[in-house]
């Protein structure tokens, strides 16, 4: 699917990327003003990956996400108000304040959850695909993870199980160049992390992760294969996080020049140029404004919501009744 030629698709892709950007900027701002608690991992600069990938999915498909997961959540269709309420520690948040940024899930939209453990979601995605197989469906599972995940045992075990059982999983590596401060180039001997796919007998491809079209094409191919019963594939999307790893990051491991060079490759600005023949300037401006309005409304409603209630803190440790 060409994301730039059809006006509705182009609008959706652009609006979603802007929504992710504005949502995370709002989070950054709330944090800076002392209105948000905990820590935060922002994906500003990486918006093309979740948007391009999730446009290859349909209702009933699953994703697993990461600690840097706001973009995956939004691209898969999560509600901004419930996300923001979670980050602001409200009872109306996705997790009623129990999970915070690193544990947002939206099972209704097939989002099986962000994950605070690097590569934690990888075997879980394999399990969701196994479940699809056993139930006889044709859904696929997309597992998002960063370059830091590919050296974890969980990654290798999850990928291998999907490969030997030919399960419908698409492994999407968001290679943003650093696992916290460790450069991907110092953490693996291969030039392309997609080369790891060969070890599991599945296809692997590396694409420009700042181009939603390139991400979409690669993921759509992999989804098509997976749905057709041809097993998993690995897509490596090269991208960059503009912000630090988390709130403690002083950017000691990379240079201002490097950051600026990647900011020149802003995936949203590039996509705006790519859709200029399809959307008018006012239509493009409207996408931006809709994103701003949606995020503002989410912040407003979250601020007005009741705080998470310690009176029911132990309620959800165990589920009751039969599953």
């Amino acid at each position: 699917m060409d994301l730039t030629k059809d006006a509705a698709t182009a609008r959706h892709a652009l609006r979603t990327m802007w929504t992710i950007r504005r949502f995370e900027e709002a989070v950054d701002d709330l944090f800076a003003r002392g209105l948000m608690h905990g820590t935060m991992h922002l994906s500003i600069g990486q918006e093309a990956v979740p948007v391009g990938a999730c446009l290859a999915l349909r209702d009933g498909d699953y994703i697993t996400s990461t600690h840097r997961g706001h973009g995956h959540c939004i691209a898969k269709g999560a509600r901004l108000d419930a996300m923001m309420a979670e980050l602001l520690a409200k009872e109306t948040g996705y997790c009623r304040g129990r999970g915070g940024s690193m544990h947002i899930a939206d099972v209704a939209t097939g989002n099986l959850g962000a994950n605070g453990i690097v590569a934690g979601g990888v075997p879980i995605a394999t399990g969701a695909a196994l479940s699809v197989r056993l139930r006889g469906g044709d859904a696929v599972a997309v597992s998002f993870f960063g370059d830091g995940a590919v050296n974890e045992g969980a990654w290798h075990e999850g990928v291998n199980l999907a490969a030997v059982w030919r399960l419908p999983v698409v492994f999407v590596c968001e290679n943003n160049q650093y696992g916290m401060s460790m450069p991907a180039t110092r953490a693996a001997r291969v030039d392309r992390l997609a080369e790891r796919a060969a070890a599991y007998g599945m296809p692997g491809v590396t694409v420009d992760g700042n181009d939603p079209q390139a991400v979409h094409d690669a993921v759509a191919d992999a989804v098509h294969r997976a749905r057709a019963g041809q097993g998993p594939a690995l897509v490596e999307a090269l991208t960059y996080r503009w912000k630090g790893h988390s709130k403690s990051d002083k950017n000691l491991y990379r240079t201002r020049d490097e950051i600026d060079a990647w900011r020149e490759r802003d995936p949203i600005a590039r996509f705006e140029r790519a859709v200029a023949g399809t959307l008018s300037e006012p239509e493009i401006a409207d996408c931006r404004e809709q994103a701003v309005a949606a995020v503002r409304a989410a912040v407003r409603s979250a601020h007005a919501a009741p705080d998470a209630d310690a009176g029911s803190l132990t309620d959800a440790v165990y589920a009751e009744g039969a599953a």
Binding site: G93, Y94, C95, R98, A105, V107, A316, A319
Partner: peptide
């Protein structure tokens, strides 16, 4: 189950 506020 807990981290998701009981949602799964």
């Amino acid at each position: 189950h807990f981290m998701l506020g009981g949602a799964a």
